[in-house]
Design a protein around this nucleic acid. Structure first.
Lengths: 123, 123
DNA sequence: ACAAGTGTACTAATCATAATAATACAGTTA
DNA sequence: TAACTGTATTATTATGATTAGTACACTTGT
């Protein structure tokens, strides 16, 4: 389910974009499946339609969706570019985290331990 | 050297706090060593003294420094609480990065590879 | 005592970004 | 035609970061 978290410091439109991208990549949203309309989702989430529209524009810009004026926004069948971007971001983030941990004096062996746990957590 | 990066999205005072904390934990700043004065550092970095003051207040709140009005701000001899907080934050960050990577479909073996590289990078 | 240096406190103004609000327009569908 | 899509535009509000200017309490060296 599409949702927003007001405790999250990221802007709402960014949360929505990331959220929907994840749902598309996981298969929770199928190729060519139509997203809720801008106005409909705005009512459902109790936020402004402009904020939804901004999120949808971002999704199209990132290659996650395609849009037809008058019809709606739909999940792309080819998500490879979005998937690559997401993986690249995740790898950069991971590398940063490793270097940060090293600077804190955390041993490499400790990181190897933590991977074992974290990688198998459900969530 | 204490510096700020305007390409960084974090606020300046936060960058300064993190920067100085790292220098204290690495030993680049010795215990009881005096930090540059608020006004002096403001001139050096060409930013407002209030921003420096905010960073110094944060550092004291986080247990990195102690402050004597009229004298200045100095590095704490006991940095254990700051070190623990920093390590804890690094571990949380690392765990998040691992789970993000897993959600992107990155294999555990790939992460193990990357640790090998990232942990030995200089920077 | 004095002057110059410390950190601190306070108020106001400026700036950027996010979000809201209201409206209008172009295209699609039944 | 009516009701739905996304898009565009302008104005307004809210928030946080930063700047600006000033004032105060304390310490140090003369």
């Amino acid at each position: 389910m599409i949702s927003v978290d007001y405790k999250d410091k990221r802007p709402i439109y960014e949360q929505l974009a990331v959220n929907i991208t994840a749902m598309a990549l996981s298969g929770e949203l199928k190729p060519d499946e139509q997203l809720p309309s801008v106005r409909q989702l705005a009512v459902q989430l109790k936020i402004n339609p402009n904020t939804i529209a901004k999120a949808y524009a971002e999704l199209e810009r990132r290659g996650v969706t395609y849009t037809v004026t008058g019809k709606g926004s739909f999940i792309n069948s080819d998500l490879s570019s979005a998937a690559k971007a997401q993986q690249s971001a995740a790898e950069n983030n991971f590398t940063e985290a490793v270097m940060q941990a090293r600077l804190c004096g955390i041993e490499k062996s400790r990181l190897l331990e933590m991977i074992g746990e974290a990688y198998d957590t459900d969530k």
